[in-house]
């Protein structure tokens, strides 16, 4: 088992802070921790399925048309998950269902299909998907902690004393998302470059 494929997505090749894929949903959904985890879990699940399928069929896909093929595969898979969730786990669908349309346009899914599952074994692709999914979830949660606490005065929906009466609304809006995103990315680069100088 190649643990590097699993761990790289969490830190060294974090999809949000390093590869910078999926920034649109990251900014849209990182307004609360509950949403961040919901989106993260749903995306991880879809990523797992799409990576697995694409690594399985990669040998037979003609190179010229691989992108349209991936798009058909991913779209089919996401639609099926959406429908099955709505039919058999309505409660889960009620909490994660709103993220599904966002996942369809999440470039992490296609990005990993093209950059990894396309060239690697199904086993490694699964590890990659889990790692990338976790990295995405953690990154969302990190942004969401700042935005929810500062912008909404809450932590996981629980009001935080002092802040809750007069939260900084800017943080919950798009500019606040960019601020937190940028600062965290800088911090990550700083650490990766060898820490304090």
């Amino acid at each position: 088992m190649n643990t590097k494929e699993l761990t790289k997505g969490i830190w060294a090749e974090n999809p949000i802070f390093v590869i910078m894929l999926g920034c649109c949903p990251a900014l849209a959904v990182s307004t609360s921790l509950a949403n961040a985890f919901g989106m993260g879990i749903a995306a991880t699940f879809v990523l797992l399925g799409s990576n697995l399928i694409i690594s399985l069929i990669r040998a037979s896909v003609p190179d010229k048309i691989r992108i349209p093929v991936y798009i058909v595969v991913i779209a089919t898979f996401v639609t099926m998950i959406d429908k099955f969730m709505a039919a058999f786990t309505p409660a889960l669908s009620a909490s994660l269902g709103i993220f599904i349309p966002l996942i369809v346009v999440n470039c992490i899914i296609l990005g990993r299909a093209e950059a990894f599952a396309n060239k690697n074994t199904p086993q490694d692709s699964i590890l990659d998907a889990i790692g990338m999914g976790l990295g995405f979830t953690i990154a969302l949660a990190m942004i969401a902690v700042f935005r929810e606490v500062l912008g909404d005065g809450k932590f996981f929906g629980i009001p935080v004393p002092l802040i809750k009466d007069d939260p900084c609304l800017l943080m919950i809006m798009a500019p606040g998302g960019f601020f937190v995103f940028g600062l965290l990315m800088a911090w990550k680069k700083h650490l990766a470059a060898g820490g304090a100088k």
Binding site: P68, V69, V72, V73, T76, K83, F84
Partner: peptide, 21 residues
């Protein structure tokens, strides 16, 4: 190839719809 992939996708989606609707 595209035709086959799309046909499979279409069948799977039709099946999904039939089961879940």
């Amino acid at each position: 190839y595209l035709l086959i992939i799309s046909a499979i996708a279409g069948l799977l989606l039709a099946f999904t719809e039939m089961v879940t609707a």
